[in-house]
């Protein structure tokens, strides 16, 4: 049964990358649709709307980071991949904040980005303010990233 530890740990890493990646792909896609709509009429807004489109893409990067750290810690990348079931499960739990928050925050951030792209379409000079709204959603993705990093490094130090 102990050999299943690595399965759970790997599953956690995969979920962190997978869910955050899916969320970001949906989010960047939504932002892209809105950005393309604006560019059709006002090509000069390209730089501004591109930034807003990319904001929901960060969750995918955070997910990748968590997956990479986890894979390194559990020894799948360059090391021995053996651990107890309990430890593997703890790694799995440590990855969940990034996986779940990453997915939902990317989609919610995308909705705000789309709304902000609408603001930029009408009032390009309000770009600075428009960017703050989707950036606020980023806070919670960063918090989840921190919790996952702390948990993964903490679990590594546990002798179970």
């Amino acid at each position: 049964m102990d050999s299943y530890g690595i399965v759970f740990a790997l599953l956690g890493a995969v979920l962190a990358a997978l869910l955050s990646g899916i969320g970001s792909a949906i989010g960047v896609g939504m932002g892209g649709e809105a950005a393309a709509g604006v560019i059709t009429e006002t090509p000069s807004s390209f730089g501004k709307v591109l930034i807003l489109q990319l904001l929901p893409g960060t969750q995918g990067i955070y997910g990748l980071l968590i997956a990479f750290i986890t894979l390194s810690q559990i020894g799948v990348i360059g090391g021995s991949a053996e651990m107890s079931l309990a430890k593997g499960f703890l790694y799995f739990c440590a990855c969940l904040p990034m996986a779940i928050v990453g997915y939902f925050s990317a989609i919610r951030q995308a909705r705000v980005s789309v709304a902000s792209i609408g603001v930029v379409a009408k009032k390009p000079e309000q770009f600075g303010k428009a960017m703050i709204f989707p950036a606020m959603v980023e806070t919670y993705a960063i918090l989840a990233l921190l919790v996952s990093i702390l948990a993964i490094t903490g679990v590594t130090g546990l002798n179970i």
Binding site: I26, G29, M30, E33, A34, A35, A36, G37, V38, T40, E41, T42, I107, V114, I117, G118, A121, K122
Partner: peptide
């Protein structure tokens, strides 16, 4: 997710 949300169309409408 973006199905039937008319995101592209609405962004163009905002400009129009």
């Amino acid at each position: 997710m973006a199905k039937n949300q008319y995101i592209f169309a609405n962004a163009r409408i905002r400009t129009k």
